[in-house]
Design a binder for these strands. Structure first.
Lengths: 304, 304
DNA sequence: GTAAACTATGAGCTGTATTCATACATGAGC
DNA sequence: GCTCATGTATGAATACAGCTCATAGTTTAC
């Protein structure tokens, strides 16, 4: 008998593209997922995936099962929201602070979905720059902070969202184009194009350049497209999330390179007070944000 | 995490009305189902059922979960049919023979549904009376027999459908009206109103009256409503399935009494050749017939 | 009042899903 | 072409979830 867990695994597989990555997403071993897949295939007497070298591809039967999986998981989600509503009228606010500038790109559709699912909740985006966003939580001026670097503090919980890679973005004819990955030294004498935020908020600077004593020139732009425009015009190098630049690298408008041998990865967390975390709608916000990002953004990994 | 098995149990519970009966339907113990229910309720922090003396009733949350359950099980059913189609183009015939006259009542909607789900399968109803329907299977003049009394024969398999009670139907002012149940003796001197089929096909006669040497007068009518009409007009007693007369007894148009202390129960089977049983569409026919009957007919029990 | 239904619940067992250990395949980099 | 990293497959061992068993408490019918 097929079970919800099989369907969730299948969704993860379709989104991740490999059994191993899917296993990480559903917090199982690769072996467990392989066994699951085999069991489902044996049960229905059809192949659900086709092995394609390092990666895996759904067969027609797999696609059909995936369609089932998506509709079933969506139906379960809807039901669970209704149950939460029945368990106790959950009116309230959700005021969100964004530490990470690029996160706007995925946050907007998530917020749109949330507004539809929880019309009774007052959704808001706290704007402006805040040196210590956690203070906003404690001062009851915000309910949820999206950022990295969880700092332990009483009464505050951090819920992992996902991990993504920050890549160096270069013009197609940049002298560093043949490097497989860039190191701190490579940024010497370069211009770094960033959002208009302080050094501390730029992972490349804080975690790579500053420790190595490298201080390249800075130039800023508000919008991601503007930054890419400057990069393409050879005005400098940018450091942006993998998934934010996929469309531009695919068409070789710009090129992307890893930062460091293993790449520069960033963990994203949703941070809130314990009390907020207990509310069903905030839990749902985090859950659907994760689901949606893993579904739509490329190259994501779960926080380890 | 809620699983498909919980949802199936919930459907069974809603259809059966008691935890014990639901447990029999899903082939689990009453205890297992009670534990399941508790687990689901604990997981969502809501009560799904309200105890009502001997029986059980869904709460609002239970109703919401039931709606989820029905839609999910239906979606899984659809997907499984599609997978069967992908596994191998299943064109073919399904010629059905009915041993049991009243079964027309539930068979028609089941056949309608089947025709929609399997347009590529030629569905047919073999009409007329046949002394030995199994012969039709072996002679390839039919594919599926619906009847009771499974006789072992090589190459032929019997798949249980359900068990139902045959009750004596009396006019509201009948002298036997105060008996809680009728015995063979009670039929002495009565007129028995039946479908126009031989003695052997009438369970009351074959299993109760004949063994006791009681041979009441017979009078026949083709249609169930006609039989009920005669009963109401005090022309005699009939023996009909529980579920077939519910509407009439509810309005006290006629009254129904058990036959024998424990009631007279009849097991229904779908009988076919092994080869037919292997075809996905015949398996699906049996499965959906069961599901649908348990859902729509009252007082059914699974075959033990 | 008794019998025959029903439900609830803790303890214990069983079966199944998961992990572990391992073999083998593929692709990138030197 | 060799090595390394990363992927998949699979049998055996393991752990835990879910089931059954045993039992007590309720409700309903006669």
């Amino acid at each position: 008998m097929i079970e919800v867990r099989h369907l969730r695994s299948l969704v993860a597989l379709a989104d991740a593209g490999t059994v191993s990555a899917a296993a990480r997403r559903v917090h199982l071993t690769q072996s467990a997922l392989s066994h699951q897949l085999r069991a489902v295939e044996a049960h229905y007497g059809v192949a659900a995936v086709r092995r394609k070298g390092q990666t895996v591809e759904l067969t027609e039967a797999g696609q059909r099962l995936l369609a089932l999986a998506r509709s079933v998981t969506a139906a379960i989600g809807d039901a669970e929201r209704d149950l939460a509503r029945l368990a106790g009228k959950p009116s309230g606010k959700l005021r969100i602070v964004l530490e990470c500038h690029t996160c706007f790109d995925w946050l907007m559709p998530v917020m749109d979905g949330f507004r539809r699912n929880w019309p009774e909740v007052e959704l808001d985006l706290v704007s402006g720059f805040h040196p210590d966003p956690l203070e906003l939580l404690l001062a009851d001026r915000a309910d949820l902070v999206i950022g990295s670097e969880p700092k332990r503090r009483g009464g505050i919980v951090h819920q992992p969202l996902f991990r993504f890679e920050i890549m160096a973005v270069l013009s197609t004819d940049h002298p560093l184009r043949d490097r497989r990955y860039l190191e701190a030294e490579d940024f010497k004498g370069q211009t770094l194009i960033t959002y208009p935020v302080p050094d501390e908020r730029i992972d490349l600077v804080r975690r790579v350049l500053k420790p190595a004593g490298v201080r390249p020139q800075r130039r800023t732009a508000e919008l991601t497209v503007a930054i890419l425009q400057l990069v393409a015009s050879r005005r400098g190098i940018a450091a942006l999330p993998n998934w934010g630049i996929k469309n531009y690298t695919d068409y070789e408008y710009v090129i992307a390179r890893h930062i460091g041998r293993k790449g520069l990865w960033n963990d994203l967390y949703a941070t809130m007070t314990k009390e907020t975390a207990r509310r069903p709608y905030s839990a749902d916000f985090v859950a659907t944000a994760k689901t949606r990002c893993f579904e739509t953004l490329q190259g994501l990994e779960p926080v380890s």
